[in-house]
């Protein structure tokens, strides 16, 4: 048994990579992941990646922000220390709109981005899980798990056929940043 962990098809063109995905999938070869220097539209559908639920998260945080913002105003202006400002009612709802709105937006943005970072394990000091150093530059990397897909020669030839510039057999999963 070889020590090869991952087979990487390195493409110079995103369309060829998409073609490679089709070819592998036709042969029932499961694709581990793709690493690209830019977003590729339509790739999620091909790889069966579920739609992101971040919009729901954003909505929940926005609702939370609206509740917190309004509660702050209601507590300070109406409940805790109502002030007589020109004889106007303490509960001056229209004047509460701007601050409630700003807090809503703030919580929505921060909450959503924090969730995005959390779910993708993005944080300062995180060792980059990069399989090919050129995946952030000019190469579109298609990774196949070599342990579960054993016919390496078939994978090689399919990737080459699709137009891969280079096919790598990696014994390490990620490249070292040391």
């Amino acid at each position: 048994m070889s020590n090869i962990k991952y087979i990487l098809g390195s493409f110079a063109d995103p369309d060829q990579m998409m073609d490679g995905i089709d070819k592998l999938q036709k042969n029932n070869i499961e694709i581990y992941d793709c690493f690209t220097p830019m977003p590729i539209h339509g790739i999620e559908a091909k790889l069966g990646v579920k739609p992101s639920r971040l919009p729901i998260v954003a909505f929940c945080f926005a609702v939370l922000g609206a509740i917190l913002g309004f509660s702050l105003l209601y507590y300070t202006m109406v409940h805790d220390w109502p002030m007589n400002i020109g004889g106007k009612p303490a509960f001056a709802a229209p004047a509460f709109v701007p601050v409630t709105f700003e807090v809503t937006i703030l919580l929505c943005a921060l909450g959503m981005v924090a969730t995005f970072f959390f779910r993708n394990h993005l944080f300062p000091g995180r060792a980059p899980r990069v399989m090919d150093i050129r995946a952030t530059d000019d190469r579109f990397i298609l990774a196949v798990d070599a342990k579960t897909n054993t016919d390496h020669e078939l994978i090689d030839s399919l990737l080459k056929e699709a137009g891969a510039v280079e096919v790598k057999h990696n014994e390490r999963k990620y490249i070292s940043y040391e």
């Binding site: 970072f117 980059p128 399989m131």
Partner: peptide, 23 residues
Amino acid sequence: LGWNGSVKTWQRFEIVALILAGI
């Protein structure tokens, strides 16, 4: 932050960009 450009990262990245734009 350890960015690697995987499919899921880009998918969430685009959603985040769109919603941030919307708000």
